[in-house]
Design a protein around this nucleic acid. Structure first.
Length: 631
DNA sequence: TTAGGGTTAG
């Protein structure tokens, strides 16, 4: 049984025994479960009953484990009935395994019933229940149960703490997490590296990344899980460059990453728009023959989609052996943000045909597809359908999408009414969405109304004032435009600096507007100047609104040059040859001026330029752009 | 011959 390979020899011995006693069956049942053939374990149990061999207390924990592994609830329930009939229902080991079985088959409530009926609960009973709730993602229940455990003065152990710390991280319960941390310190449990890993995870997820890092560095040994926890910690804190740096360190440290590690690494590449790095990661995954799990496949898809490489994303999707609602959602959102709204909706239809239930996030993708493709009626229909046909109550994000659909298409009055009649509390983002469309459609009336509302909710956000100011400017009301800018200054509201990331040869460069910290800054500024001169000579007229107002405000001749995006493009032009694709991502929306300029740059310099702002893509090629945003 | 644990995607 303990030898690697098949069970043939063990079976031969078993067959040679005339009347095998229960213990022989038990050992074989356990062995088959261990050796990845739990089906055989179940057959053996049936044989045992057919041969009228009485199961004992050892039999049940073994056979239940086989059911648990196969997730066969029906068989498990039948065995549960045998257990009760034969009077083993109050045996501790059996009960613990029952909890495990039910929890593993998605019946946590039944598991809890077994738990509640138990007269004596050992620490393993509690831990099994923690594991059950964790599997379902009921992290709050884990914390609640642990607090019960403390009140009842039940002894817990390191395994309990690992589960509870994980839960603390998920629900952001730093207070309990720190209490456990101190407990670990005082009880001298720091030698348990799995325990420290869950501490690292807890601190990182509660936003205390520095503390996580400190613990991580103090660990005498770090396995792949510890590294993965820390990398994901950086990733989730939005510190994606540090996540990639740590991945590099991990490789130097000769620890083999697994598919879980790669998910966080890819997610970081996606956030940074690190296309070359991510492609290398994909290659690395192939070379290591890692299993493309649903999660890893979805992370890959998301990475490609967020780098504007939607066809690669589709290829991964088609090759995935199993897909879930997240995979479909990523695809729909990816197509939508890459300007292929129609195609996104086609995939939504396909998804429905395959009986995959969409969830709230899927609808965010579907609605944003409508807004990107200008499909107003389709959007209205889907918005109604989501609650009526799918029982999903729209959240603020869904209302935001709907406002975007209406307003972007020019139905400003209807959009404003829609916001006014919303049954849930409005936030600044809703009005900001409206305001952005007012800028495009030059509507002073609704622009003013929107800003009025925004200021009540979020008075210090600079972009809103700029938008209204630009609306005034776009209709020639320069006095009003300057007044808004003055108000902004008087209130001490500063423009948040534009920030653009560009990756050249695998290295990520960051540009902040009016920031000259880059080692090549002189060369880059010169390139911006040349660039602007050259596209002006072929007919580019800077957006009067931006240029004139910025010049007034900052007394600068070429106000256009202080956009971070232009710095990044110039840097890209310096470092690439004609015909290549330049990919950049920025933290703010692409403004109309940059948009027009980039179109021309793509033509004059013969580069394909892909710009990602927070949630959409602009594919510039040969002087045109794929998006519907500016016209 | 029996039971429980840490890292992952929209």
């Amino acid at each position: 049984m303990v030898l690697p390979g098949s069970m043939d020899y063990a079976l031969a011995i078993f067959d040679s025994i005339q009347e095998p006693p229960p213990a022989t069956y038990n050992i074989l049942i356990r062995a088959f479960t261990m050796k990845q053939s739990p089906e055989m374990a179940i057959l053996l149990y049936i044989k045992m009953r057919d041969n009228a061999v009485e199961p004992d207390k050892y039999t049940f924990s073994g056979i239940l484990k086989a059911c648990s592994r196969l997730r066969v609830l029906k068989e498990g329930e039948q065995i549960h009935a045998h257990i009760s009939k034969m009077g083993f229902g109050f045996h501790g080991f059996v009960q613990n395994t029952l909890i495990h079985l039910y929890a593993n088959c998605g019946k946590v409530d039944v598991a809890r019933r077994v738990f509640d009926k138990m007269q004596e609960r050992g620490v393993i009973t509690w831990n099994s229940m923690f594991a059950g709730y964790s599997k379902r993602g009921s992290w709050g229940e884990v914390v609640k149960l642990f607090q019960e455990m403390l009140e009842l003065n039940v002894e817990f152990d390191e395994v309990s703490l690992i589960s509870v710390l994980t839960a603390c991280g998920r629900v952001g319960n730093l207070e309990l997490g720190e209490w456990i941390s101190e407990y670990i310190e005082t009880k001298g449990l720091v030698g348990n590296l799995n325990l420290i890993t869950s501490l690292v995870d807890m601190y990182a997820k509660c936003g205390r990344v520095e503390e996580a890092r400190r613990l991580f560095h103090k660990m005498p040994r770090r396995d792949v899980v510890a590294w993965s926890a820390m990398i994901s910690g950086y990733n989730q804190a939005g510190r994606c460059r540090e996540a990639l740096d740590l991945f590099h360190e991990m490789q130097i440290g000769n620890v083999d990453p697994n598919e879980v590690t790669m998910v966080s690494v890819l997610s970081s590449c996606a956030v940074l728009g690190a296309f070359e790095t991510g492609k290398w990661v994909h290659f690395f995954i192939k070379r290591k023959r890692m299993k493309i799990t649903v999660t890893l496949g979805t992370a890959l898809m998301d990475f490609y989609a967020k780098c504007g490489s939607i066809e690669d994303s589709l290829e991964v999707f088609h090759k995935m052996s199993s897909k879930n609602v997240l995979s479909w959602t990523v695809l729909i959102k990816g197509l939508a943000s890459n300007g292929q709204g129609r195609r996104a909706l086609d995939f939504f239809t396909q998804m429905r045909k395959k009986n995959i239930e969409p969830n709230d996030v899927t609808f965010i993708g579907v609605l944003s597809a409508c807004s990107h493709a200008g499909l107003v009626d389709e959007g209205r229909r889907l918005f109604v359908s989501m609650s009526r046909d799918y029982g999903i109550e729209p959240r603020i994000e869904h209302y935001g999408c709907m406002v975007d659909i209406l307003a972007r298409a020019g139905f400003l009055e209807e959009a404003y009414q829609f916001v006014t009649n919303m049954p849930i509390e409005r936030n600044a983002i809703i009005y900001r969405t409206l305001l952005a469309s007012c800028r495009v459609h030059k509507s002073v009336e609704f622009g003013e109304k929107s800003l009025e509302n925004i200021v009540k909710l979020e008075p210090t956000h600079s972009g809103d004032y700029i938008l209204l100011s630009n609306i005034y400017a776009s209709v020639g009301r320069w006095e009003d435009a300057s007044r808004v800018r003055r108000q902004m200054k008087e209130k001490g509201i500063k423009k948040s600096p534009g920030c653009t990331l560009i990756e050249i040869d695998g290295a990520i460069h960051e540009f902040l507007a009016e920031h000259s910290a880059h080692p090549q800054s002189k060369e880059i500024y010169r390139a911006v100047e040349n660039m602007m001169k050259r596209i002006k000579s072929v007919g580019y007229v800077p957006d009067v609104t931006e240029a004139r107002l910025d010049a007034e405000e900052d007394d600068k001749e070429a106000a256009v040059s202080h956009h971070s995006e232009k710095l990044a493009i110039a840097f890209g032009l310096i470092n690439t040859s004609p015909g290549t694709t330049i990919r950049i991502s920025k933290n703010l929306r692409v403004c109309s001026d940059c948009h027009t300029a980039t179109k021309l740059i793509s033509k004059v310099y013969n580069r394909e330029i892909i710009v990602r702002d927070r949630n959409r893509f602009h594919h510039f090629k040969g002087g045109s752009c794929s998006c519907n945003d500016y016209w």
